[in-house]
Design a protein around this nucleic acid. Sequence first.
RNA 1: GUCCCCAUCGUCUAGAGGCCUAGGACUCGGCCCUUUCAAGGCCGUAACACGGGUUCGAAUCCCGUUGGGGACGCCA
Length: 570
Amino acid sequence: MSALAVTRFAPSPTGHLHVGGARTALFNWALAQRLGGHFLLRIEDTDQARNSRDAVRGILDDLAWLGIHWQEGPQHDGVGGDPRGVGPFFQSERLARYDAAIAQLIEKDLAYPAFDTPDELEALRKRASAEKRAFRYLRDARWDRAAALARMASEPHVVRLRAPDETIVVSDQILGEVAFGPEQIDDFVLRKRDGFPTYHLAVVVDDEAMGVTHVLRGPEHLNNTPKHIALQRALGYGSPIYAHIPLIQNADGSKLSKRDKDKAARALAQRAFADDATQRARADAALDPKRLAAWLGDTKSQLETREIDALERALGLDLPSVTVEDFRHAGYLPETVTNYLALLGWNPGEKLADGRDREQFSMDDLAAKFSLARVGRGNAKFDRAKLLAFSQEALAALPDAEWLARWRVWCERYAAEVATSGADPQRVLADPARALVFAASMKSRCATLAAASAPNGPGRFALVADGAFAYEPQAVAKFLAKGEPSGFALLERVRGGIEAIAPFAPAAIEAAVAAFCAANGVGMGKVAQPLRVALTGSAASPPLGETLALLGRAAVLARIDRCLREARPH
RNA sequence: GUCCCCAUCGUCUAGAGGCCUAGGACUCGGCCCUUUCAAGGCCGUAACACGGGUUCGAAUCCCGUUGGGGACGCCA
C-alpha cells in the first residue's frame, strides 16, 4: 500500500458542472491538499446514450477556472497528467480492465450472466410497486451454471453480482457507522447488455487501480456504498475511506441540480413560443424536436443540462444560475464561488479578532485547514443573496488595477462589445487614468463584474455614446425643470466653468463645482443633480467628480448641450 | 410503500453536559454619514421541532413522535 493519499472527482460528462458537483470536487481537492496527496479527475463516460466530448471540455474548463486543479487526470490547459501511470482517465478507454474483473468473478461463481429482458424486469417492478413492496431482483433457484455460461456467447445478457447474504456496515467519516441488511443488497448489474460496465463496477475497479484512498461524494451514494463494499470483497480489494457530504438544495428544499432551471426554462420557452412563432423553429433546430415536444408537454420531465444550455443559447433565455458556467457568466469571481460553496457544509471554526466567525478565506486557507471532522451532516440550502453579498465584498476589496483586469477579462468573454468597441469606442478603457477611476467607482457599486455594464448598471452611462441614453422624465421634471433658478439655467451657467477645469480629474472637478455653488449662493445639490441628469439621464450616479472625469471634458460639454437642446421644453 | 440520512434565527452556521440571558454572517427594519446612488459605521427583530427519559445540571447523551431529504435503473 502506498502512503499517498488520493482523492478523486468522477463526473459523468452530461453538461456543465453544477454547483453541487463543484463543491464535491472542491472538498476532494481540499482534502488531498491537506493530506499532501493527489487529487485525481476521472471521467465516467460509460453511458453511451448521454455522453458528449463538449461536456467534458466544459467540465474541465469549469474546474480549472475555479482553481480546482487536478494532479492526475486528463490534460487540460497545463493541468493534469499521469505521474503514477494509473490512467487512462476516461472509463470508456478502460473496458478491458472491467471485463477482466468480471471474468474473474464469473470464474469464481461470484457473478453470473442473467438473460431477463428489460421489459420483463419492468413488469416485475410495476407489480412490486402495485403491491406496495420493494422490488428486489431474485436469482433463479433452478440455476444451471454450465448452461448459462454456454448461452453467454450467443445471447444478449447482463452480468450480475452474486450478492452476499450478510449485513454490511459502512464506516463513514461524517455519518459514523451505517448498517445495511442483506435484503438491501440484491444481485445488481455489473455489465450492461451493451458490454459497458455499470457505474458500480467501474467505480470499484478504478478506485482500486488508481489507488484512491478517500471517497468523498454526495449523499445519494450512501445507499450504493454497501454494494461497492460487497464488490470489493468479491474482488479481493480493500475498501477506501468513505465520507458522504450533505446535499445542496434549492431555497424550496428541492434538489438543486436542475429542477429550478428546468422549471424556469419551460415557462420562458413557452412564453417565447407564444410571442414569436419563429422561436419554436429555432428551438427545434437547437435540440431534438421530439424531446422538446415531450418536455413541453410533461411538466415532470426534465431536459439534460446540455439540452437546457442549447435551448438557453438558441432563445436567449435568462435562466437562474445553477452551473459553474452560469456563475462565471453572471460575473462572480472564482474565489468567491469556491469560498461560498465551501461554507455550505464546512467552516473553519475560527473566530476573528472582532468576535465574528471567519467566513472569508482563500483556496490556500481551504487547502491548509480543511478537515472532514468539520463537515456538517445536515443539508444546506443555496442562498443566492449571501453569495451576492460575498461577491460584493470580494470585488470591493480588490485593488483598482486588479478589478479592472478582471473586468476586462470578463468583458472579453461575455460582453465583447463593451470591451472592444462600444458606441463611443474606448472612452473609458483607452485612457489608463480614466479606466482606474472607472474601477474605483464601480467597485463599491457592483456586486458582480457583470453589473457594471448592465443595462441599468452604474457604469452604463460611461460606456455608451453621448446620444445613446434617455432622460428619465421624473428626473428631468424634478431637477431640471423646477426651481428658481431652474436646473436648466444653472446648467447653462456651470457649463462655462467646466471649460476651465484643469486637470479634468475628480478632485479638481469637485472643487470647481463647489466654488461655483458658493459664488452663486446655491447648495451643491442644486447643481449636482441637474448635472447628473444631463450627463447620465438619471439622478443617481457616482460622485460628481468621478462622473465627469469618467466622461471626459468633451463628452461632458456635448451631453450638457444635448440635454439643453433635447430635454428642455420650448 | 421499503430502506437510509438529517433536525439551532427566514437562510448558512458556532456550539462536542455547566462558559448559553444561545454567538457570528446573509436577509429584513431603524439610525448616522451624505450633492444623488452606493459603500461604510452603529442599533434592532429573529432559533435550540415536539414528547419522554439519563443527569445535581441538556441545544449538547438515549428513546419515541413529527417534519425534511435521499435511494430503491441494464443513469451516474
